[in-house]
């Protein structure tokens, strides 16, 4: 490949080859379906639910947005566990700065928990 043809010619050729490599099987499959295998849509086949029962109602039901609270509390406790474990394992070898940083981090998480507590999320009704 000579340089006067442009340095991008090779890349273009490669791109075209890659595109053909991806599209040819798809085109062949499409052609095969067109020639041999007719589509047979039907009421059952096009229904949305797949457990054998007939679907009832609408799929677009409102979802309670208050579940974000559970997501946040889960995150607080989950991240806490994730970082406390290595913290506890290497506790004796840590410097004072590292322990302080970890305590600040814990404080942030505990703040989240306190906030949730104050909001009354932890009450089981």
């Amino acid at each position: 490949m000579t340089s006067e043809q442009g340095p991008y010619l090779f890349l273009t050729l490669l791109g075209v080859a890659a595109l053909l490599f991806a599209l040819t099987p798809l085109a062949l499959a499409w052609l095969w379906a067109r020639v041999f295998s007719p589509a047979k849509p039907g009421l059952d086949k096009n229904s949305i639910y797949e457990c054998g029962l007939e679907s009832k109602g609408d799929a677009w039901v409102p979802f309670r947005s208050e579940y974000y609270l559970y997501a946040i509390i889960f995150l607080v406790l989950d991240v806490e566990t994730l970082f406390l474990m290595p913290f506890a394992v290497s506790f004796s070898g840590l410097s004072t700065g590292a322990v302080l940083a970890m305590l600040v981090f814990l404080l942030l998480l505990v703040e989240g928990l306190v906030w949730a507590w104050g909001k009354g999320v932890l009450n089981w009704k």
Binding site: S37, S47, G52
Partner: peptide, 14 residues
Amino acid sequence: APQVVRLYNQMAEP
């Protein structure tokens, strides 16, 4: 049986 037949209907050919 209705559920089995419906599942069969939902399967793609062949």
